[in-house]
Structures are given as C-alpha cells and as structure tokens.
Design a protein around this nucleic acid. Structure first.
Lengths: 194, 194
DNA sequence: GAGGTTTTGGACCAAAAGGTCCAGAATTAA
DNA sequence: TTAATTCTGGACCTTTTGGTCCAAAACCTC
C-alpha cells in the first residue's frame, strides 16, 4: 500500500529482547533500545507501541528461544535420565564459563523485579514456568516407562523441583558459585528423583 | 560543637534499607528515599554521600537484619535437624502468606541485577553467602554430633545446597508457587542430607 | 549574648527519561 | 504523474532523575 518498513521486525524484536535480557527492564532506556535495534525512535513507537509493550513482546521472543534451547532439548530422543543429566550439566558448564556474559534468565528476573509487573507479564511468567514443569514431567514419565526411574514419588512434584533447580542454578551462578559447586547442586537435586 | 542532626541516622538508614528492599536499586529514586526516610535532600547527601553509598550501607543494614532473622535462628539451642526443618517451613509459611508483601531478598536481587554491580556490592554478596553457608554447615555439624545425621556426604556441599535452596524458595515464591509447593521443595531438599 | 559550626529545607541544575510531532522520503494504486 | 499512504529521522516536549547550593536555623562554647 505505502512505504514499506525498512527493517526486519523480527530481527529488531530479537535485538530488543537481547537488550532487555542483558540489562533488565528498568536499566534499558529507550535510547539504548533505539541504538541497539538500529532503528529510529519513531519507528520503534510506531511498530511496538511503547517500551512496556515492546518488553512484553521481547519476553515472548525470549520464551520462544527458551523453548528451543531448553524444552526441545528435553524432548530429544534417547535415555531420559541421561538427557536430563546432560541438560543440567550443560547449564552448569555454560554458567561456569567466564567468557560468556552470564545473563540472568528473563523469567527469573521478571519474577523478582516487582516493579515491572503488569498482569500480562505475570501471566507470561506463570505460563512459562508451567511449560517447564510440563517438559520435565514428560521426561520423567519417559524415564519411568523406560524403567530407569523406579519410584513412587509424585512426578509432578519432581518436575516442579527440577524447574526450581534450573532457576536456582542461574541465581547461584550469578551469586558467584563456580562450576564445581553448580555440579554438586545438580547431582544432589537429581538424587531426589528416586 | 554545632547544630546536631535532627534525625536518627540508624532509623533513617533502616527506612532506606526497607525502601531498597521493596523496590530495588534502580526503581528507588532519591525522591522516594527522601520522603520515606523523612529527611531532607541535603541531609541525605550530607549524611550518606550518594545514592550508591546509601545503597551499600542499606545492604549492610539488611545483612545485619538477616543475621538476626536467619543465622541466629540456626544457632539456637535444640535438635539441629528440627531447627533446620522449622526454619525452612517458616520460610515457606511466610512466603506463601498473601498478606505479606513478599519482597525479594536483597542479596538475590543484587546478585541478579548486573547493573548496580560495584565491586563493593559484589564483595558484600559473596561474604553474605559464605556466612549463610557457614551457618548451615555448623548446624549440620551439630546434627552429626547429635547422631541425628549419620552420613558421609560432605557437609560443606550440603551447606551450600541449603543456601541455594533458601534462595531458590524465594525465587519460587515470587514466581507464584504456593505454600504447598514450597513445602514439597523443602522436604525434597532435606532428604538429600542423608 | 556572640562567634563559630553544622544541619536544614527548598530552590535550583543539568542530564536523561519516555514519548510525540512533523516535514520529507519511499512506496503502491490509479 | 499523481494521489494516497506509510515509514523515517530528528527536533522537540514534559517529567523525572541524581545531585548541588545557599540562606536561615539550631546548637555548643566561650
């Protein structure tokens, strides 16, 4: 109909997401958004509405990525318990390595922040956590079907515990725990499964 | 010598701490500090230097309170494992109750924030976590001496795991877990001790 | 009470915040 | 070509930010 957008909306959104991820909502000014997204102020507001709305969309983008990085990985073929352990160990590895910037999970940060807590964000948080719970649950179910997990404990509770552990690892790493300590935490958490 | 201060420095600091605790560093403006501390702008700057310095002092004040609320409690007389369990259950209780504002632990928040990360704050974080580790460690030692904890696992690792659990409970509650779920997490964490 | 010293409240400041506006550029449909 | 429409860059606006300044007030010592 008219002049087309000069930038890729998804790319811009992704850049916004990375910025929010790195800095958090409060510390991310519209100025740095504009510069990191590589678009003009007007374009930002015309396309995304406001900082708050952009943040909500960035959160969705983050969760989409999380699904690939985490959930799809837990759904991969193979022995369930091995997949579980490998997953957690890779988290420890990544969190323990010094070269990577070590960002806080957006969901954890948003849970904590308290200030940027619109009802929409709250809903996104709960939904995502339920999704993680479900992914761990399905994996545990698989393990039980495989016979590698012979336990009577409620798998729902186990799944919730794993989600909590996942988030706890993030916090622990940010608080300064090293890779060895993270692995200790993981092996302990996994022993509670049976 | 001259005109004396009209307010109680410690009281003012405590109010500042509560404000930072509730809102976080970024979201706490000097404006709300001035109004909640009940002192004038000039007094604030004359007494505490800057927002950053005040925050550091507030953090110290928080840690002092933490020592009373948490560490001293763990050092109380009685059966060590019962003290441990009671402690965690009371955390779940408090975190699960709806009337209380449910604030994020300042240490957890500071660990995560990334922006307000002066080296001094980093040091305070590490020191505090070590202190928590030590408190849990001493309690576990007591349990072993009592004979209630007969295990060969490294108590240092167990202690670190408990500190992590303590922080994880905070995050989990803020993410929307209810009291029942928190208790599930606790009982699981405690089973790893032996 | 006078002199010296510190605190106080409020006016003030520059910078940065989130957000709007608009003239012009770029496109498509006619 | 032109008309209609949308996008773009940058100037601009208001509010808020962390922080300073200063005259007046309050105290202590002499």
């Amino acid at each position: 109909m008219a002049r087309p957008r000069e930038f890729d909306r998804n790319k811009a959104l992704h850049l916004a997401m990375e910025t929010f991820w790195e800095l958090g909502y409060e510390a991310t000014s519209t100025g740095v958004l504009v510069s990191r997204m590589g678009i003009g102020r007007s374009s930002l507001y015309a396309t995304f509405g406001s900082k708050e709305e952009l943040y909500a969309e960035a959160m969705d983008s983050y969760v989409r990525d999380l699904r690939v990085r985490v959930i799809e990985r837990l759904e991969a073929d193979g022995p369930a318990l091995e997949i579980l352990e490998d997953f957690f160990l890779s988290v420890a590895q990544r969190r323990g390595s010094t070269d990577e910037p070590l960002r806080c999970c957006m969901i954890v940060r948003a849970s904590i922040s308290g200030t940027d807590q619109t009802p929409e964000i709250r809903t996104r948080i709960k939904k995502t956590i339920e999704e993680l719970d479900r992914a761990f649950f399905k994996l545990l179910q698989r393990a039980r079907e495989e016979g590698t997990l012979k336990t009577n404990t409620k798998l729902r509770d186990s799944a919730r515990f794993l989600t909590t552990t996942f988030q706890a690892l993030n916090v622990a790493a940010l608080a300064g725990r090293d890779c060895r300590e993270l692995r200790e935490i993981i092996s302990r958490a996994l022993t509670t499964l049976d």
